[in-house]
């Protein structure tokens, strides 16, 4: 058993490392074939002197051979040197580092809401299978699936912020506000967090809900559920002790596998609500053609997603005793 597990584990880690390496390569080459790289911009500028071009070439290491450039690129990565952002004129690592906190806050809160409500929605739908509640839940998740996240965000702003004036729609704190106490400040943060977190959570709820629904329906049709009933457990005990633990397995792993999709949602939500996180940063980097920054964010996000996938495999191994090689 232990042998099988460690082989499985090794296999998964190797796969993740290969994927990360490929991402590194893709990142390296993509940003060297781009038409708008700083060097070609500089060269297009007729006033750029030969010296300036040479200097830029040296600065970006473009005067070296491609393998040498790749070696330098890897070295820089190990030193966490992702270059300097055009926009902020600061090292990319510093720029990104300052934005991680707000994104984690947004992702964490949205995931929490989505997991709780999504699983609840799935359970309610599954236990009223084929009836109005179920049809409603399915329609809701289908609608949420078809709705671009940014559009949902703008509609929520329109309703909650503009018409009802309930929640702020921009940023993370009220600009230039002074707070009399820490809890007033927290309240302000929560108010700002509400709409973005709600938007992101809503896009996830449909997904988790439908997954939980189908998973629970499938589990409840399994033979061991009949065994549990035959033993004399009440319907409630059957579902709680034998239904949920089995039905939750795919949902739990979906949460980390879905991180890629969640990040896609976060980019849109942060953009719409000017939330000062990685997603908004990516939007700004895109629209200012800040390639070093874009490259840094892309690398960070890819590695996070790959690691999350690896973690979900590990989690499954812990939760489901059946997992073998």
């Amino acid at each position: 058993m232990l042998f099988v597990s460690s082989r499985y584990l090794g296999n998964k880690i190797a796969q993740a490392l290969i994927t990360i390496f490929i991402v590194l390569c893709v990142n390296f080459f993509l940003f060297r074939i781009m038409p708008g790289d700083p060097l070609s911009m500089l060269m297009r500028n007729p006033r750029a002197s030969q010296q300036a071009i040479q200097k830029a070439k040296e600065l970006y290491g473009l005067d070296q051979s491609l393998p040498a450039q790749f070696g330098r690129y890897l070295q820089d990565l190990v030193k966490l040197d992702f270059g300097v952002s055009f926009m902020f004129k600061k090292p990319v690592v510093e720029v990104i580092g300052g934005k991680i906190g707000p994104t984690l806050l947004l992702l964490g809160v949205s995931e929490l809401i989505a997991i709780i409500l999504g699983i609840y929605l799935g359970i309610v739908a599954a236990s009223h299978r084929g009836r109005i509640v179920d049809v409603g839940a399915i329609s809701l998740s289908l609608l949420l699936y078809s709705l671009p996240t940014f559009l949902l965000g703008m509609v929520l702003i329109l309703v909650f912020s503009v018409y009802w004036g309930l929640f702020p729609s921009v940023g993370m704190v009220t600009a230039a506000a002074k707070f009399s106490s820490w809890w007033r400040q927290s309240l302000d943060l929560l108010a700002h967090l509400f709409l973005p977190a709600m938007t992101l959570a809503l896009t996830l709820i449909g997904e988790y809900g439908m997954l939980m629904r189908s998973s629970l329906i499938e589990v409840l049709s399994e033979d061991f559920i009949v065994t549990a009933r035959a033993k004399g457990l009440s319907e409630r005990e059957v579902i709680h002790k034998h239904g949920y633990p089995n039905a939750l397995l795919p949902v739990v792993t979906a949460i980390s596998i879905n991180l890629g999709l969640t990040i896609a949602g976060a980019i849109q939500v942060e953009t719409v609500f000017s939330w000062p996180g990685i997603g908004r940063l990516m939007y700004d980097a895109l629209n200012n053609r800040d390639y070093p920054l874009l490259q840094g964010i892309f690398l960070l996000v890819c590695i996070c997603v790959i690691v999350a996938n690896l973690l979900s495999d590990l989690l499954y191994m812990v939760l489901d005793p059946r997992v073998k090689s």
Partner: peptide
């Protein structure tokens, strides 16, 4: 009837299939 199940009458299902909870 629930309390009589298993106490008076128990069942042997097709155990080779999926009659036992896989995660317990």
């Amino acid at each position: 009837i629930r309390m009589r199940r298993w106490k008076d009458v128990s069942i042997v299902f097709q155990g080779a299939m999926n009659s036992l909870n896989p995660v317990m």
